[in-house]
Design a protein around this nucleic acid. Structure first.
Lengths: 194, 194
DNA sequence: GTCTATAATGCGATAGAC
DNA sequence: GTCTATCGCATTATAGAC
């Protein structure tokens, strides 16, 4: 579900090609490292044509990553629909690992890009998503240890996705290893008291 | 020790002020987010004065982070000087956590900055440091699980240093928690066979 | 809906005076 | 060792024709 309210986002044929090109270039050169010129050249139009679709680069980036944001929202809702803490965490963990392994090329650049950091500050949906993810994984009234563990885990996911020594692992292998780590990290010991 | 050969790096009084200003601004705005103009303004000189000290921005960045690189080299050497695998890992772990907690404001921006990513590609010392760190922590002939664990751990360190919910923890608390995580992660189970 | 043309800005870097 | 002045370039963004 997660129908986006207040932000009409019709996706026409031109906009679809724009999204695909932007996504590919973002994954390859990073978001900051991709200029509107590069995107325009890639699909064979001019910069001005890009500006027809989005008023600013920020809005273009938001438009391109919106489907991923939506999926994370859906994952959070699926998690919160479950009753037990362990089930909530397991659901969110599986959903998150699935998503980022599938979109690893994009995720690894988006996670660390200055543009994304900037959007985190100005885009409500991105602030909300990070906060809700942390809250759900940390549980009620987390102590310092639990808080650090959660943040550590979310940050740790980025490494294997980008590192050369892990880049040639196939998706299933990587997914399994990250799930193991996540379970060890988030589903063990005393922290499970909520 | 780790005396830098082949790269004379005299530090005069003017250069000292330049380093201090750059370090502070890098930590605040990121490295990519800090222009030479900002640095020059901060110490009350012109851009051209900065160019007297360093021919390019890349060289300035290298000059500023060099002391930290040197410390990591020292940590690696201290680790390799020990005989057992567990001792090696424990030594490197403690040194690394100490260093990055102490320099957390810089580390968190440096770890994810595009400029640093670029320097990783062109600066031999930075390539070497990352490779040696991974090799030492992973041990001889690591399997996929161990490789992912190491990369995950190194990437995970960045999160707690930058996150709001952890930013106000004092250094000792954070150091303790990160050391715990590191020991659980790198010093347990089968992976210790070397 | 896409174009040409251009504005406005900020960047890294250089030349040459003092 | 620091300055003024400026170059050359890339960027985001706009205005207006087709």
């Amino acid at each position: 579900m997660t129908t986006t309210v207040g932000e009409p986002r019709p996706v026409g044929p031109g906009r679809q090609r724009l999204h695909e090109a932007a996504l590919r270039l973002f994954a390859e050169h990073g978001i900051s490292g991709t200029s509107l010129q590069m995107i325009a050249d890639d699909i064979g139009v001019t910069k001005a044509a890009v500006y027809y679709h989005y008023k600013t680069k920020d809005e273009l980036v938001i438009g391109v990553v919106a489907p991923f944001i939506d999926r994370v929202f859906a994952i959070l809702e699926a998690g919160q629909a479950r009753r037990g803490r362990r089930g909530q965490i397991e659901t969110v963990l599986e959903g998150l690992v699935d998503l980022i392994v599938e979109a690893r090329k994009l995720y690894v650049v988006a996670a660390i890009d200055p543009v994304i950091a900037h959007l985190h500050e100005i885009h409500p949906r991105m602030r909300e998503i990070a906060a809700r993810m942390q809250d759900l994984l940390a549980g009620p009234d987390p102590d310092d240890e639990r808080r650090v563990a959660v943040v550590f885990f979310l940050s740790g996911l980025v490494g294997p996705l980008g590192d050369e020594s892990c880049r040639d692992m196939d998706d299933d292998t990587l997914r399994g290893l990250l799930l193991d780590i996540g379970r060890r990290f988030l589903l063990q010991r005393k922290a499970m008291r909520g």
